[in-house]
Design a protein around this nucleic acid. Structure first.
Length: 522
DNA sequence: AAAAAAT
């Protein structure tokens, strides 16, 4: 322990890269004890600015060290004085309960040598307990929007003393329809305050919010440095609907799965698949938004600790939580929104190591797969499941009905039988989200709540392929797609040469091609 | 057609 180290050495010990950023001794001490000595680029840039009291507009995603980038300086800002009852001095808004909990854990860890208090205001847990903590006075309030507004309206909270506001993951807030809530909350805060605003992307709607909330902000933009760029190998297994669970089990057995998220589209299917996997003796857990909060946190902890190897989940885990270092992501269901595919598979790919993102698709999923491929700009390489016959998509129409065979436009004869060991194509860092989300947001700038959006025009712009039927028949250019013989579905061939995409960090200032992964635009 | 977040 640190306490055992002689004082002279302790001074040397504390003299890490963080000390140069102006953090106080108690915070540095906590960092050393956690074993952190070198700040990440965003920490290096953000910490001095936050300590200065300036507003920050941060373009950064999870995994960049963003959370410590604002918690560390906030601890120092707040450590000067004490909070009064029901009047928190800082507020951190998070889109999901899991992220809120993670931030709270950060505060506890880094603030262990300071006498600061925090409250975690999230749904699904007893409100009376949270109110009690508030009454005692808290320095840091970490909250999801719904519960915060609820408690505020019940009079359990005064926000007039909030000096520092953090809006984290603003783009996720937008996706989840929280922006009206966030605007309401910000309106309750004193106008004279420091605001830190973070988002993985800066879509126009996000930019509009930032302009409204921030005054003269310092813009900070970072992405993961190229050296830790991950490699994600994608694969698409075409299976019959009744074979899906069997196919998944076979893939899990044949792949070198360390730990994996398995995504389903529906919560009830999460439950069903979880039970099925457990029956088949797999180490599995389940996670979706209808589960009790305690179970959500407990399962997540077990999964992170390696006690559970497979986590069956809904899209709550696609964006709402931060789990690093996955060897695999499985899409048990093809996501209905192409953007969700990118978010899901972006969960795999460990720093410098290979991650595999494998999707099970049935004939009914064809349109959804086409939409994904249109969005990512490359075909997902086909993957054969050992011991299962691949489904021939050419014989099924988009709604999964069998086409009549032997007629005029019948499929060409098969040249070869499917190979059993098709290897998925390697995709270099196909999902560095900083870039992909930029593309995504371009298609999603509608400020309305997602439920409204759904009913509106969004559905009509899903990839529609008028030439589809023609292309399903006579196919050209059927080189090197393993596992399909001559019957390669047309959509698998679109722009295949773009399948290898080397991701570059987008530069804030157009034309600036100097980019080492860290960059400040003033 | 579904998921998240407030009850």
């Amino acid at each position: 322990m640190f306490a055992d180290i002689p004082t002279a050495d302790a001074t040397v010990q504390l003299d890490t890269g963080f000390a140069a950023l102006g953090l106080s001794e108690p915070v540095l001490k906590a960092l050393v004890e956690k074993g952190y000595t070198t700040p990440t680029p965003i920490q290096e840039q953000a910490i001095p600015i936050v300590l200065m009291g300036r507003d920050v507009l941060g373009c950064a995603q999870t995994g960049t060290g963003k959370t410590a980038g604002f918690t560390l300086p906030m601890l120092d800002i707040l450590s000067g004085s004490r909070a009064r009852a029901r009047m928190p001095r800082s507020l951190i808004l998070e889109p999901t309960r899991e992220l809120a909990l993670q931030v709270a854990e950060n505060f506890v860890q880094y603030g262990k040598h300071l006498k600061l208090t925090h409250a975690l205001l999230i749904g699904g847990e007893s409100m009376s307990e949270q109110k009690e903590v508030l009454t005692r006075g808290v320095d840091v309030l970490i909250a999801t929007p719904g519960r915060l507004i609820d408690i505020f309206e019940r009079g359990g909270l005064l926000l007039s003393d909030v000096r520092v506001l953090v809006i984290d993951e603003a783009d996720r807030m937008l996706d989840m329809g929280f922006i009206p809530d966030v605007e309401r909350i910000v309106a309750m805060l004193p106008p004279l305050r420091q605001t830190l605003f973070f988002s993985a992307t800066m879509a126009p709607e996000i930019k509009r919010l930032a302009d409204a909330f921030l005054s003269n902000p310092k813009e900070i933009s970072v992405s993961k440095p190229a050296s830790v760029a991950t490699t994600i190998t994608e694969g698409l297994a075409l299976v019959a609907t009744h074979d899906k669970r069997e196919a998944l089990r076979r893939l899990v057995r044949t792949e070198d799965v360390q730990n994996a998220l398995i995504f389903c589209n529906r919560k009830r299917d999460v439950d069903i698949l979880y039970k099925s996997l457990t029956r088949h003796k797999f180490s599995a857990g389940a996670l979706h938004g209808d589960m009790p909060q305690s179970a959500r946190f407990a399962t997540l902890e077990k999964f992170k600790a390696g006690e559970i190897r497979l986590l069956v989940c809904s899209d709550v885990a696609a964006r709402g939580i931060d789990i690093g270092g996955l060897s695999h992501v499985f899409n048990f269901d093809v996501p209905h929104h192409a953007e969700d595919y990118v978010h899901r598979i972006g969960r795999t790919g460990r720093a410098g190591l290979e991650g595999r993102a494998l999707t099970l698709a049935t004939p009914e999923d064809r349109l959804a797969v086409e939409a994904i491929q249109k969005l990512t700009g490359h075909a997902i390489p086909p993957l054969a499941v050992e011991g299962l016959d691949p489904v021939d998509w050419a014989e099924v129409d988009s709604r999964g009905r069998r086409r009549s065979r032997g007629g005029k436009g019948a499929s060409p004869p098969r040249a070869e039988k499917a190979s059993k060991s098709a290897a998925p194509r390697r995709v270099e860092a196909a999902v560095q989200p900083a870039v992909d989300e930029m593309q995504l947001k371009a298609t999603r700038q509608d400020p309305r709540r997602s439920s409204e959006r759904m009913r509106g025009d969004r559905r009509t712009d899903t990839a529609r392929e008028p030439r589809r039927d023609r292309e399903m028949r006579g196919l050209e250019n059927r080189d090197s797609v393993i596992g399909f013989g001559a019957d390669i579905p047309a959509f698998m061939q679109i722009r295949r040469r773009t399948a290898v995409v080397r991701m570059e960090t987008p530069s804030r200032n157009e034309g600036g091609d100097h980019n080492d992964g860290t960059e400040i635009a003033a």
